[in-house]
Design a protein around this nucleic acid. Structure first.
Lengths: 351, 351
DNA sequence: TTGAAAGCGCTAACAC
DNA sequence: GTGTTAGCGCTTTCAA
């Protein structure tokens, strides 16, 4: 039933098919695809239409064989919260391999070697850089990587600026949503553990919490707010302080899962049941959140998806750069999700 | 100083270079590379020598352009312990993209849909399958995937057999090493939490523990051995039983990190310090191990590396299969590592 | 058992 | 602005 192709060929549309349909030469199609200059507006449109109609996409093998310089992207990470890092890797590796982009991964531990690490990557000829979480918040690191003219994207962190493409969830909105959820459950004394002060997201999460409280007409009580550092250990300390309060909170919202897990541990140590005696919520939905018991209600950032987006955006920038154009630095917002699990309940004395 | 290549070209050796050096045509070289039949022994040797001398390796882009059927590997996973899964993905994606192998990933949740999931992959035209951890231990799943004649590799799990290529650490040796480490610290009453009974590794770990005890002349006490299921929750229950013993253990060795983390939680809840009042060790070195406090002493399986190996072995098999040869099913052992962190110490009353 | 020719899909170089 | 030509490195087909 299947007609054998003349020789081989995958069956999908080629650049010549597009050229024929649009009434131009393959070369012109190639120019359009690669954002090359010097193509008449009308020609470009016709070709784009043909591309769409044929659902054409260039064959990467042919492309690389024809000698285009491959796109290389550097990924700089540090302090690997294993779960976060691997989501980043999964997402970016996946997309990179799909669109045939080389990914060079390097670890960098500021303050020691961030300069070297960045320079090392640049020497390896990367055309753009992805900066992962704690790194995008270190001004020195950002300064170093934005020195050259390669585009840089900050993944889940960093302040939107003219130097940086950023991809974030709306931390304010997310913390706001979680706090509102807690208020909806009936909580009035809601403890909050702030994240590491060096990360911009920490402040935004705190503001979201404050705003939700204010909107509900709940007076702010500064004693309910403790500083943490995104580590389990800092969560332990903060939780202890919170639970030692004369009137302890009925719920604690920690700025990440590690600290939330620590709150659960402290509660248990004190003979408190979670969630019946204390509601605990986290942020990030790392492996932690669903491995401990009870499983944590938390905010999920689509890290893998964001990493994919990062690769895409960076690739677009690099291509634009090669074609001599320049795109404005974009600041993308990804959708968060409130994941309700078993660590939250109405406060005990509510009715 | 650099002489511009005539037009482009990467500079590395091509099939023609090899052909010229060996004194044959590119075609014959191609045959040798692809394991094709009909090449004289002496010719083959000469060409192989030339390949080696030039350090030649075929250009995958050219290859795929020339229309060889791409190698497609299916990866079947379930019950994603996020950390484990992403290590698997990172390793396999990385290697697959490097050697230009397509990886098709599918989730499968037995007992519902393992048959469909496997068949779905096969329909997508995969030439071989990787089975990740809990799956390789389910006989029904193994039966289904080995029905056809595609090669299957079991990654970190499964019983070595004629149907399956397996890649494992030596669970017996690893558990043995950890137990010995604990004994070396001075512990005599060492609790053990067994992993899920459906996974073959659980039994091997238990045996390793037993053997080390026996070697040290420590009489086995069955009360110190509790059944778990690799979940945090089962670890909680097992730890409670262990700590309720008239003479509780001074150390607990859990068959994975999740359960070890649960032991730490129970200890803390009971006012016990880890490691000073109780030593706790895990297995796997997942994110958990280094996120909680104290960080867990544990056994590390080089999952990502093992995944890379899996892709390589499968690819070799598929290539051999295509060339009409058949390799014996290999059973590879990867090296584990005992990661010493802060959750172990000599027993209190030792001196 | 080996080789020659042609072509996979694309783009760089150079016309026009 | 657009087209022509040639060739990237490999494999298939077919002939010797």
């Amino acid at each position: 039933m299947s007609i054998k192709q003349q020789r081989r060929g995958t069956g999908s549309a080629t650049i010549s098919d597009v050229a024929r349909l649009a009434g131009f030469s393959p070369m012109t199609v190639s120019r359009v695809i690669n954002g090359g200059g010097n193509v008449k507006e009308s020609t470009r449109d016709a070709i784009n239409a043909a591309i769409k109609e044929l659902n054409y996409s260039p064959n990467p093998a042919a492309r690389s064989l024809a000698g285009v310089e491959p796109i290389r992207i550097g990924l700089l990470y540090s302090n690997p919260s294993a779960a976060y890092l691997s989501e980043v890797l999964v997402g970016s590796l996946d997309r990179a391999s799909r669109i045939d982009v080389q990914l060079v991964v390097a670890r960098c531990e500021p303050p020691e070697n961030y300069r070297e690490a960045a320079e090392h990557l640049l020497e390896r000829g990367v055309h753009g850089l992805i900066l992962t979480s704690p790194l995008c918040d270190l001004q020195e690191v950002v300064d170093v990587v934005t020195e050259g003219d390669q585009p840089v994207v900050a993944l889940a962190g960093g302040k939107p600026s003219d130097d940086l493409i950023t991809i974030n969830v709306d931390d304010f909105e997310a913390a706001h949503a979680m706090t509102k959820h807690l208020i909806g459950l009936g909580h009035r004394r809601i403890g909050f553990i702030i994240g590491s002060p060096i990360q911009a997201a920490s402040g935004r999460r705190l503001e979201g919490y404050r705003a939700a409280l204010a909107e509900a007409g709940i007076p702010a009580d500064e004693k309910l707010i403790e500083q943490g550092h995104f580590t389990y250990r800092s969560g332990l300390a903060a939780a202890d302080k919170l639970m030692d309060l004369a009137v302890p909170p009925t719920a604690v919202f920690a700025s990440n899962d590690d600290m939330a897990a620590a709150v659960v541990a402290v509660a248990h140590r004190r003979g408190l049941d979670v969630p019946n005696d204390l509601t605990v919520c986290g942020f990030d939905d790392t492996a932690f959140a669903s491995s401990i018991w009870p499983e944590l209600t938390t905010i999920r950032q689509p890290i893998a998806e964001m990493a994919r987006t990062a690769v895409d955006m960076l690739t677009d920038e690099i291509l634009a750069h090669r074609a001599g154009k320049s795109l404005p630095r974009e600041h993308r917002i990804a959708a968060f999700e409130l994941i309700k699990r078993q660590s939250d309940a109405p406060p005990k004395n509510s009715r």
